[in-house]
Nucleic acid binder design. Structure first.
Length: 692
DNA sequence: GCACAGTGTCATTCC
DNA sequence: CGGGAATGACACTGT
């Protein structure tokens, strides 16, 4: 709480406060979701005519610091606004159709109170008590109003609102753990249980609301898809422009008292609570966050990029390794584990303090987990990769940026497309209209599923890995889970998740030291069914399947590109997909052909070998025949000469005479000398003839 | 841990 | 000249 003034006086929103506190201690990250825009933003929106839609902004939390000027007017509007009077305003429809997160006001209030308690200030108890008492007037209705408002807002994703039956089912377990394992909390166990039960009811109520909103959401999404074909602005641009609008819905209606009173109490706090604190004590935010106002705009407007905060936190950590990002020992020893205890002990009316929020069942669990970890324990496990993953998450949550996504995919190419989990996750979404939010809180297992579900929704098909949330989760205390609940508002319900994927995804929740390992395993499990191009296509919202893109004839392909409005990135990706697809088929054919050639050659070799054997056998047979003929000739010779007699009647010596057969058929017995000489002459004659 | 096969992709060439 | 096929080379993954 001490850090409130510098930021507030700087014009920034409460969000700054939470960021600052998150730097000093992990327990305050939750407050990142308190979207209280700086006065300039509010005025801008007023000028734009959006003020009437943002009762949440109607609050003037800084009366002691000058206020916003229009606060009263806005406040009246916000309180007068009847959810039924504007059930589906165009703006709201646009926002929901774009799947932009929508945070029920009640949750914001709950987190605010929680964040205050986590602030570990002496005045926090009083503030909490006062806030609870103040919210008792509007808190009860806030639970209902906030829930009803959350439903349409969460309509961007059926599981948007954290309320869920699952949470209700787990709510009995959740409170028991911290109570049993943390003796300090035993004194407040009953109060915790009451709170949790109360919030379980609220979450149940919200779930019912979400079911209604989910049905409304589908046609809206279709409408949005159709509009995308015509609209020049891609979704991600539209989302950016509508983020501020979404934020207006964050607080919903009805519970402004709790916030307002709290702020008044804060402003009326003695200055000693702010003593010794200056901006100089606060490590500057690097990068885009240059000053309080800018950072305020950055964080407040893009409340949905809760992870983005973490990215900046990471950057700050990198730039200021010795700064207070790592909680100082004093803070570590003095602050840990107190927030929830304080919160519980000083929340006289749980239902009003945390109206209708699913955080109820969740907080004790997180608390329990956090109790077992020091802030350093949590931060030590965070490496660059984790923050890079968080970057992915930020992409998913903040406006859809095809360029960045594409870069991400390119970077992830080497890791088997780590990029993203995709389609499989979404099945859980469709499945989890009831379960997504249910898991919102309830138990650690629910938390796992929640982290998964929340990821699924990121941005239409582009789903960061659940483990990323896990990393963030470790540092961000329960606040982040609130963001988790927001993330799945962006669900794209067009993708399917296999049941096995659900199981695997639930395993993805782990603490940092294990997350990398499990992350890769999870990715392998969940992303196995999608090629990289398919993931890329979904990430860029390519309205065609990869198969279509690849197999389509050239003419159809070109006409398709000209028929639909596609960004350069989309066209480039489509052409790449087609090229790679064609080449992939070509490579397959090439290999098949090569294999066929090899097989054919092998067949040829076999045939030739067989032929060789046959020829060998024929040769042997011929040789045998020749030998037989020689033998017969030899016998004939001997037979002839045995019968021949010379002029004196003596037998003719076969060694001196030879039988010569002439061409005319005559047979002569001539001396071998003549035969040899005659043969020589004939040979010489033949040679001469051949020479000539 | 290594070898190997299968696969996707890129670069290049050819048709 | 553009698109696609063919193919060598490389990297990655699973067995």
């Amino acid at each position: 709480m001490k850090y409130l003034k510098p930021w507030w006086s700087d014009g920034g929103g409460l969000l700054h406060l939470t960021i600052l506190l998150s730097l000093a201690g992990l327990h305050l990250d939750l407050d990142l979701y308190l979207l209280l825009p700086p006065p300039t933003l509010l005025r801008d929106e007023l000028l734009l005519g959006g003020g009437s839609r943002s009762p949440a902004y109607a609050l003037d939390p800084f009366p002691a610091f000058g206020g916003w000027g229009h606060a009263d007017h806005l406040h009246l509007k916000g309180q007068e606004q009847d959810p039924a009077a504007e059930p589906e305003g165009q703006l709201l429809r646009e926002v929901r159709a774009l799947g932009v997160p929508f945070i029920p006001r009640t949750h914001v209030d709950a987190w605010l109170v929680h964040g205050v308690a986590a602030g570990d200030s002496d005045g926090a108890h009083e503030l909490l008590g006062a806030a609870a008492a103040a919210s008792s007037t509007g808190g009860a209705s806030a639970s209902a109003d906030g829930g009803s408002q959350a439903a349409p807002g969460g309509g961007g994703d059926p599981g948007a609102a954290p309320g869920s039956p699952l949470a209700a089912g787990e709510e009995e377990k959740a409170p028991a753990e911290p109570t049993a394992q943390v003796p300090d909390a035993s004194g407040h166990a009953s109060e915790e249980n009451e709170i949790l039960r109360a919030m379980g009811h609220s979450s149940q109520h919200e779930e019912n609301e979400q079911r209604v909103s989910t049905q409304k959401e589908k046609p809206l999404q279709r409408k949005n898809e159709n509009e995308n074909k015509v609209a020049d602005k891609p979704e991600w641009e539209a989302e950016k422009t509508t983020e501020s609008r979404n934020e207006r819905h964050l607080n919903g209606t009805g519970t402004s008292l709790s916030l307002e009173d709290l702020f008044q109490l804060l402003s009326s706090q003695p200055e000693n609570s702010l003593e010794g604190i200056s901006l100089g004590d606060i490590p500057p935010f690097p990068g885009s966050i240059n000053d309080g106002m800018n950072s305020s705009a950055h964080y407040d407007v893009n409340f949905s990029q809760a992870i983005s905060h973490d990215v900046n936190l990471h950057e700050a950590m990198l730039l200021c390794p010795d700064n207070t990002l790592r909680r100082d020992p004093v803070a570590r020893t003095s602050q840990p584990q107190e927030p929830f205890l304080q919160f519980n002990s000083h929340t006289t009316n749980p239902e009003q303090t945390l109206p209708g929020t699913n955080l109820t069942g969740f907080l004790p669990v997180v608390d329990h987990q956090m109790r077992n970890l020091t802030s350093q324990d949590l931060l030590h496990g965070l490496d660059i990769n984790i923050f890079d993953e968080i970057n992915l998450m930020s992409l998913a949550t903040e406006g859809f940026d095809p360029m960045e996504l594409s870069h991400l995919f390119e970077e992830s190419d080497s890791d088997s497309g780590l990029s993203l989990n995709s389609s499989q996750n979404s099945t859980s979404v469709t499945k989890s209209n009831s379960s997504v939010c249910e898991g919102a809180i309830g138990s650690s297992s629910d938390l796992e599923s929640l982290s998964q579900h929340a990821l699924e929704g990121a941005v239409g098909g582009y789903y960061p890995e659940p483990s990323k949330l896990c990393h963030v989760d470790h540092r961000s205390d329960s606040g982040f889970h609130g963001d988790l609940a927001f993330q799945h508002i962006l669900h794209n319900h067009t993708y399917h998740l296999e049941p096995s994927a659900l199981e695997s995804t639930s395993q993805s929740f782990s603490w940092p030291e294990k997350s990398q390992k499990i992350r890769s395993r999870h990715f392998n499990d969940t992303d196995r069914n999608l090629s990289r191009d398919e993931r890329r296509a979904k990430a860029l919202h390519i309205p065609f399947s990869v198969d279509e893109i690849v197999r389509m004839p050239v003419d159809s392909f070109n006409s398709m590109l000209s028929k639909y409005y596609l960004t350069d990135r989309q066209v480039s990706l489509i052409r790449d997909i087609r090229r790679r697809g064609k080449n992939k088929v070509a490579a397959q054919n090439c290999r098949k052909r090569k294999l066929d050639i090899i097989l054919n050659l092998e067949d040829d070799v076999c045939n030739l070998k067989a032929k060789k054997e046959t020829l060998k056998r024929e040769r042997v047979q011929c040789n045998k025949a020749i030998n037989i003929m020689k033998q017969k000739l030899h016998y004939l010779y001997h037979d002839i000469f045995s019968r021949l007699r010379d002029e004196e009647g003596r037998p003719v010596n076969p060694n001196q005479y030879a039988v010569q057969c002439n061409h005319d058929g005559s047979v002569l017995i001539i001396p071998k000398e003549l035969v040899t000489s005659g043969n020589k002459k004939e040979n010489q004659k033949g040679k001469r003839e051949r020479r000539n």
